[in-house]
Nucleic acid binder design. Structure first.
Lengths: 178, 178
DNA sequence: ACCCCATGTGTACGAGCGTACATAACGGTG
DNA sequence: CACCGTTATGTACGCTCGTACACATGGGGT
C-alpha cells in the first residue's frame, strides 16, 4: 500500500470506526480493527487517535449529527401546528423501525458515556442541543422531560427486545406536555 | 491454595464479578480478573461459568434484586396514600445520591443488554416486575411510562454528569399520572 | 529552492485474553 | 467401603491487544 498524502485520512478512520462499532460493538473496537476496516496501516490509526477514547469522541459526535438530521428531516420542528407528541412518536417509530444496526450503534456510543468520562461532554452537548430544539415547541422543562421519556421508551424497546408501540408512545408523551 | 470442597464458591465468584464491574466496568471483566478478585484459580471461574455472558446474567440478576430491595425499603409501594410522583422522585434521589459506584454498576449491567442478547430476558424480567409493582399504585400503562421516564431521567444525570433535580423529577413524573 | 515538520509506514515487544485439557480430590450413593 | 460423577486445580497454546519506535516521505512556509 502506497497511499502517501491522503488528505481526509482522518475522516475515513472515523467512518471506519463507526462501521466497526455498528457491526461488532464497542467491545470489538480496537486500533487494529479500525485500521483494517479503513484499509490503512496500524500506525496510521494510532497517529491520528492516540487513544480509543479520542476515536469514540469523534465517532459519537458524528453519530449525533446523523441523528440530528433524522430529526430535522422528519419535519417535527417545522410542523408548528401539528400534534407534537404524535410527531415525536412517529419519528421514534421511523428511527426504531429502520436499520437496527444504526440505532444500536448510536445508542451504544451514547450510553458509553456512563463509564467513559471523555464522552460525557459530547453526550451533554447532544442532550442540551436537542432539548433546545424541542423547547422551541414547548418550554425548557417539558423539552427535557420529553427527551427523558423518549430515551426511556427507546431503552425499554432495545434492552428487552420488545416491540415499539407508537400509540402508547404518543399517549404518554402527550401527558407530559402541559 | 488448597481450598477443596468450597461450597458457595459459585456465589463468591458472582460477588467478585459484581465488584470487578463496579470498579473497572464490564470492559475490565475477564475470567482472570474475577478469579483474582474471588481468590480462586482461573479454572474455577471457567468451570462454573463457561462464558462471560453466563456470569453477567448471574450478576445482573443479583444486582436487580439489590435494587428491588432499595425500592421496597423506601416504602414507596406501601405508601398508598402519599404522592406517588414525590415518592418515586425521592427514591431516585436517594439512589443517585448514594454510592455512585453501585449506581453505575447496576446501570451498566442493565444497559449491556443492548449488545448482549443473553441479558435481554433478564432486563425484560426486571422491567416487567418493576412495572407490575408500580401498576399496583396506578395502571399498567402509567406504570410503564413512569418507569421509562425514571430511566430517562437517570440516564441524563449519569451520562451528562449533571445534577439530579428532585423537584423537576417530581413535577414531570406527576404529569404522566393521569 | 530548500528545509523542516506533520504525516505515513512497518515491525517488534510484553501483557492479557479465552480456551482446552490432564490430573486430583471430594463426597454422596449403592 | 468402593465407586463414580461433580468440583477443583494448574498449565499451556494461540491469539489480539496497546504501545513504542525507527524510518520514509512530501508539501508548505521562508
Amino acid at each position: 500500500m502506497v497511499r502517501r498524502h491522503d488528505p481526509d485520512r482522518r475522516q475515513r478512520i472515523i467512518d471506519a470506526a463507526i462501521r466497526v462499532v455498528g457491526e461488532k460493538g464497542i467491545a470489538g473496537l480496537s486500533h487494529r480493527t479500525v485500521a483494517a476496516e479503513a484499509d490503512v496501516p496500524l500506525g496510521s490509526t494510532t497517529y491520528h487517535f492516540a487513544t480509543l477514547d479520542e476515536l469514540l469522541v469523534a465517532a459519537l459526535r458524528q453519530a449525533n449529527e446523523g441523528f440530528a438530521e433524522v430529526l430535522d428531516g422528519s419535519g417535527v420542528p417545522d410542523d408548528t401546528e401539528g400534534d407534537l407528541a404524535a410527531g415525536l412518536a412517529r419519528v421514534l417509530g421511523e428511527w426504531l423501525g429502520g436499520e437496527r444496526t444504526g440505532v444500536e450503534l448510536e445508542y451504544e456510543l451514547y450510553l458509553a458515556a456512563l463509564r467513559r468520562p471523555a464522552l460525557r461532554p459530547v453526550a451533554a452537548e447532544w442532550t442540551e442541543e436537542t432539548a433546545r430544539r424541542l423547547a422551541a415547541r414547548t418550554d425548557p422543562v417539558t423539552a427535557r422531560a420529553l427527551l427523558a421519556l423518549m430515551d426511556g421508551i427507546c431503552l425499554q424497546v432495545l434492552l428487552t427486545g420488545g416491540e415499539y408501540d407508537e400509540g402508547y408512545a404518543r399517549e404518554v408523551l402527550a401527558r407530559v406536555i402541559p
